[in-house]
Design a protein around this nucleic acid. Sequence first.
DNA 1: GATAATTAAATTGTGCACAATTTAATTGCG
DNA 2: CGCAATTAAATTGTGCACAATTTAATTATC
Lengths: 147, 147
Amino acid sequence: MESEQFLKLDNQLCFAIYACSREITRLYRPFLDELGITYPQFLTLTVLWEHKRLTVKEIGERLFLDSGTLTPMLKRMEAMELVKRVRGTEDERKVYIALTERGEQLREDALNLPEKCIPHFGLTKDEYSGLLNQMNQMIESLQKVTR
Amino acid sequence: MESEQFLKLDNQLCFAIYACSREITRLYRPFLDELGITYPQFLTLTVLWEHKRLTVKEIGERLFLDSGTLTPMLKRMEAMELVKRVRGTEDERKVYIALTERGEQLREDALNLPEKCIPHFGLTKDEYSGLLNQMNQMIESLQKVTR
DNA sequence: GATAATTAAATTGTGCACAATTTAATTGCG
DNA sequence: CGCAATTAAATTGTGCACAATTTAATTATC
C-alpha cells in the first residue's frame, strides 16, 4: 500500500526538513565561531537587535522556546557579556533581557552573515521567498495542532 | 540596505526551517510516545526497516549523524531491546546494528504514523512532493560546502 | 482582604547533536 | 615484513530542546 512508501526515509519530508535544518546550522557554524556564539544564541541576538528589550517569555514566543531552554542559554550569554538580565520591578516575576554594548556591536559583524550563507542554499531569489512562505505557512498549520 | 532586511528574524529561511523542524517533532511526539521511542530513534528504525542490518557508520551516512550521537542512542535502543549490536568478526572495527523481534514488530505500529501526521502539515500532495524535492536539493547544495 | 488560580522563571532530568580526542583494528607502502 | 596512515567506534565535554516540577509573584474571586 501507500503506507509502505510513506515510511521510507527518502519520502519523508519531516526527515528532509530535520536534515536541512542541521546542514544550515553546520553552514553557519564557522562564521558564528568567529563571533564566539552558537546558532540559537544568534537567533536570540537577532530578536534583541530588533526589539532592544524583551522578557524571557517574549523571546520564547518569538523563537518558540521555553524558559527551560532560554534561562541557561541567557545566563551563558550574560557571562559572555552579550546581554544583561534584570528582574522587573513592577512585576517581579518578569526578567528583562537587554543587549550590552558588546551585544549591540556584534550586530555589525553579523550583518553580512545571511549574505555569506544564503547563496549556498542553491536557491533563486524567488525560490527562497517561496520556500520562506511555505515554511511559515506550515509552521502556522502545525501550531494549530501542537499548541 | 538589504543586509538589514536579511537579518530580520521573519526573513530568515534558516529560522523558518529550524522552527518547522521542531514543530514537526512536536507533532510526532505523542504518537512516538505511545511507541516508547523518540524521533531520532524512529528515524534509525526507519533505515533499519529498509535495510535489516547496517553498521553504525552506514546508519550515520543515511541520517547524517556521527558515532558521537549514534553510539549512546543505539545503546539505549539496545537496552529497550529494539536493536542488537554485534561487533564484526572479519573487521572488528565495525559494529553491526540489526533489529530484534520487537524492533521488527514496531514497524506495524509505526506504519500509519506518516498518514496521521502529514495532513497537519497543511500541504497539498503536489506541495508536499515539491517541498520534498526542494529540501533534498538544498541539502545537496549545502553538503557540497559543509563536507 | 484572605485565598485560590494563574503566571513567569527557574530547576531537574533525559536525550540528542556535534566537535575533539582516544582506542583499536586494518590498510597502504617502502 | 614493519611501520605509518587511515578507518570505525567509543569517549569526553559543551550546548541546546523540552517535559515536568518548583518557586515566587500577581491576579481573580468570593
